[in-house]
């Protein structure tokens, strides 16, 4: 069978589908000071599965932690229009479980173009393989 670390090189999704791959990628992002990217990506996935009674509070927490402060990597990466869309959603009584989907897509695109290829060339990944 193909070793997991070779699968990680197939796509970002293959990497993030694997626990060891996710942990190693997160360690790499920590070294670069941008682990918020992957934390936010998983927070968006988790948000979709969160029960409705917790959704309003969680949306505010995600918004405050990653988006409202413009100096963070997530906030700097996602588009202004996406940020205003989320800001408008957060205050509504009934939250759309997909309200972070566009932001998640933008963060994913950034990781695919930037941090994921760098990870595959990193000492951390090469040492692991």
């Amino acid at each position: 069978p193909t070793p997991p670390y070779l699968k990680w090189a197939e796509s970002l999704h293959s990497l993030l589908d694997d626990q060891d791959g996710t942990n190693l990628f997160r360690s790499f992002l920590c070294q670069e000071g941008c682990e918020d990217l992957v934390d936010f990506w998983f927070a968006c996935s988790g948000f979709r599965q969160t029960s409705q009674d917790k959704r309003a509070k969680l949306a505010k927490v995600i918004y405050r932690k990653y988006i409202v402060d413009g100096s963070g990597i997530v906030s700097r990466t996602i588009k202004a229009a996406t940020k205003s869309f989320i800001r408008d959603c957060v205050g509504k009584p009934h939250l759309d479980p997909a309200m972070f989907e566009q932001a998640q897509t933008e963060i994913q695109a950034m990781m695919e173009e930037n941090t994921y290829p760098l990870f595959l060339k990193s000492d951390l990944y090469l040492e692991y393989t």
């Binding site: 997991p4 694997d18 996710t22 998983f42 988790g46 509070k57 969680l58 927490v61 995600i62």
Partner: peptide, 20 residues
């Protein structure tokens, strides 16, 4: 860890892949 951090952490963890 306060409850907001806890809520966020649980949300992130719930979406992460489980051990093979």
């Amino acid at each position: 860890m306060d409850s907001e951090d806890d809520l966020l952490q649980k949300c992130i963890t719930s979406a992460m892949p489980k051990q093979r």
